[in-house]
Design a protein around this nucleic acid. Structure first.
Length: 448
DNA sequence: TTTTGAGTTGTTCGA
DNA sequence: GTCGAACAACTCAAA
């Protein structure tokens, strides 16, 4: 009897325990992907397009044997299971609120056919690391220590052979959404593995020093691949085992942040929509026409603060923003424009190719102060200083803000000080010193 | 139970 | 220009 391997956010063939299980247990396998309208609609163009490209790459790696079906998984998966008389449906766990609910309904609809869960998108699945008293961690550093101690399995190899059921109907993948000039990374598992190898060999050594520099290629850029499971974090983690140095440790910690936020979301699914710290419901947030105009200026990269505008334009150009700059633009929205983190998080989820619910929502909440292990409220990023410190060459700003390309060096961060202000570049829509004090007052008002 | 120490990512001010 | 302290108190983790 064949089994079904239902791919979701694990679009790869190596380091895939559920696939190994499916191949080991049965004669043949049906590699399945379900185009679920409930997931595609809110995902945003870049992420959908990247996912479709990853599916094409996966299909190529399977010699064209990927079966695609469209519809509600609770209908589609059991129907296929009946069609091929499957012995089991194998999956990697999905811990997001929607995924958990979906899988519950699919398991019920499958009836006698087991929905067999093996592995997850994380080295250590959410819920597995907890304090000695059994409750989840709410602070990163102790979580990291416990996570390290917990350990994780070595990555399993790609199955030598995958025998599939032939002659099954497969839907055509839909046309990719139009995303204009946005340049996405090359999709698929092979691209992910190449990216990792390049980062490991060329950038890891200097990662600790350079990772905050958006003007030079210094980060792994694995986020989109991790989001769709083109690579599992075990693969880089296994490589890190045999290496030493600051960069190795710092990068391992970045991977652990992803796991920490997944754990937090697992334990508190509502934190994707609401403040983790309830008192932040009382924070005064602007609304109305003027707030809408400020939000539009932020999304379009015309706030008049070069580092902020460069970041927001990088989002449109690449569906990706350097991590340091994500903090800068988030801080600007929340503390200089006095808008809610949820509005910013929603925008990010719409445009980011790597948009991951747990990391995104909790990254925003960390900046806003409402999250786990949050930054102290008096910590307000100064967009000029951040630009001067982390983009000292000014190359990052010039890359994304053509109006400022004629300005040399670090002076690009203070265009208002130039003898002749650059043509077409806006003057700042708010004054940072003033808005900083305003933010501090508002935060003061909701102090615990 | 109580106590103690620590906590991703900053900025400003004054010496 | 550089350095350290202040910013405020709170929650969490662990002994």
């Amino acid at each position: 009897m064949p089994s079904i391997l239902w791919f979701r956010r694990d679009l790869r063939l190596t380091d895939h325990p559920a696939l190994c299980d499916a191949v080991a247990g049965d004669d043949t396998v049906v590699p399945l992907f379900v185009l679920d309208p409930a997931l595609l609609e809110p995902a945003g163009g870049p992420r959908v397009r990247f996912m479709l490209d990853c599916l094409r790459a996966l299909d190529d790696d399977l010699d064209g044997r990927l079966v695609v079906r469209t519809g509600d998984p609770a209908d589609v998966v059991p129907a296929l299971a009946r069609e091929v008389e499957a012995s089991a449906v194998h999956i990697s766990a999905d811990f997001n609120p929607y995924g958990r609910q979906r899988d519950y309904h699919v398991a019920r609809a499958l009836g006698e056919v087991p929905l067999q869960t093996t592995g997850s998108p994380y080295a250590v699945s959410p819920g597995r690391v907890s304090k000695p008293d059994g409750t989840p961690y709410r602070v990163y550093t102790p979580f990291y220590r416990a996570w390290t101690e917990h350990g994780y399995p070595r990555p399993p190899k790609r199955p030598a052979r995958i025998d599939t059921v032939s002659g099954l109907r497969s839907d055509r993948l839909p046309a990719a959404p139009d995303i204009g000039d946005t340049a996405l990374p090359e999709a698929g598992e092979q691209a992910a593995l190449r990216r990792w190898a390049d980062f490991r060999d060329e950038h890891l050594l200097k990662y600790a020093e350079d990772r905050n520099r958006p003007d030079i290629p210094s980060t792994s850029r694995l986020s989109a691949y991790l989001r769709w499971g083109c690579i599992h974090p075990r693969t880089p983690l296994a490589d890190l085992e045999s290496r030493t140095g600051k960069g190795t440790e710092v990068f391992r910690k970045e991977l652990a942040w992803r796991e920490f936020y997944a754990d937090v979301l697992f334990h508190q699914p509502d934190s994707a929509r609401d403040h983790l710290q309830p008192r932040y419901a009382g924070l005064k947030v602007d609304s109305g026409k003027s707030a809408d105009e400020r939000f539009a200026a932020w999304t379009e990269g015309r706030t008049g603060y070069p580092i902020v505008d460069a970041g927001m334009r990088q989002l449109r150009a690449e569906a990706w923003i350097h991590n340091r700059i994500r903090m800068v633009v988030a801080s600007f929205l929340v503390k200089d424009l006095h808008l809610g983190w949820k509005q910013g998080a929603r925008h990010f989820m719409r445009y980011l190719v790597d948009g991951d619910l747990a990391s995104n929502q909790h990254g925003w909440q960390w900046v806003a102060g409402s999250g786990t292990d949050a930054s102290p409220f008096y910590r307000v990023f100064n967009p000029v200083k951040q630009g001067q410190q982390f983009d000292p060459s000014g190359d990052y700003v010039r890359r994304y803000v053509p109006e400022l390309r004629g300005v040399d060096g670090v002076a690009v961060h203070t265009p208002w000080d130039l003898p002749a202000p650059p043509d077409g570049y806006p003057t700042p829509i708010v004054e940072h010193d003033h808005e900083r004090r305003e933010a501090l007052e508002r935060y003061e008002a909701i102090k615990g």
